[in-house]
Amino acid sequence: MFWETMLKRGTVPFAIAAIGALAVPAFGHGLGMLDQLETGAWELRERGQGGEVHRLCLDNGRKLIQLRHQGMACSHVVVDDKPDEVTVQYTCKGRGYGRTHIRRESSGLVQIDSQGIVNGLPFSFSAEGRKVGKCGN
């Protein structure tokens, strides 16, 4: 009954378009903010007591999306894409999933919050990412 009414009103195409606009593949369009981050050596400082410091060579800001599932082929859905922040949900079939929020303060400074499941175990972390130089130094 609902769909019949919607078809008569001609609103079904608009409803389908609206639903499709809510979930955009992460590596298609969008996420321009991540493309504007500087490449090079980055330091990720986890917040909290005894926060670990990780270094990585960042050649593409999109790598910050799945830090706990690095190098895995995962499907992505953009939940939110704004000029200075993005939220992406991803699933790595048989290996887990995650949801990452990244806020850019500058092209060399970001705030990252991520949580999910990796290899059957939960993870959750908040970190500050900062460009610290060139890769290999």
Rank of each mutant, 00 (worst) to 15 (best):
29 H>C: 06
60 N>I: 03
58 L>C: 12
50 G>M: 11
57 C>Y: 09
60 N>Y: 02
53 V>K: 15
46 E>V: 12
30 G>F: 12
65 I>K: 00
46 E>M: 15
28 G>Q: 14
54 H>G: 07
43 E>P: 09
27 F>N: 11
50 G>T: 06
46 E>Y: 11
59 D>M: 06
37 L>M: 11
53 V>R: 10
38 E>H: 12
38 E>K: 13
63 K>C: 01
42 W>P: 07
64 L>S: 02
33 M>H: 10
62 R>G: 00
64 L>C: 05
63 K>F: 04
56 L>A: 13
34 L>R: 07
27 F>W: 04
40 G>P: 07
35 D>M: 10
29 H>Q: 15
27 F>Y: 12
39 T>P: 00
47 R>V: 08
57 C>M: 08
64 L>W: 00
54 H>F: 14
52 E>S: 11
45 R>T: 09
52 E>H: 03
49 Q>S: 14
32 G>M: 06
48 G>S: 07
27 F>T: 09
64 L>I: 01
52 E>I: 05
33 M>V: 15
65 I>E: 00
45 R>I: 11
57 C>L: 06
35 D>L: 12
36 Q>L: 10
36 Q>T: 08
28 G>N: 06
34 L>P: 03
65 I>A: 02
50 G>R: 11
62 R>H: 03
28 G>W: 06
54 H>W: 12
37 L>T: 13
43 E>T: 12
31 L>M: 14
49 Q>F: 12
49 Q>M: 10
44 L>A: 05
32 G>S: 06
48 G>A: 13
50 G>N: 14
59 D>Y: 08
40 G>A: 07
50 G>L: 10
61 G>W: 01
28 G>H: 08
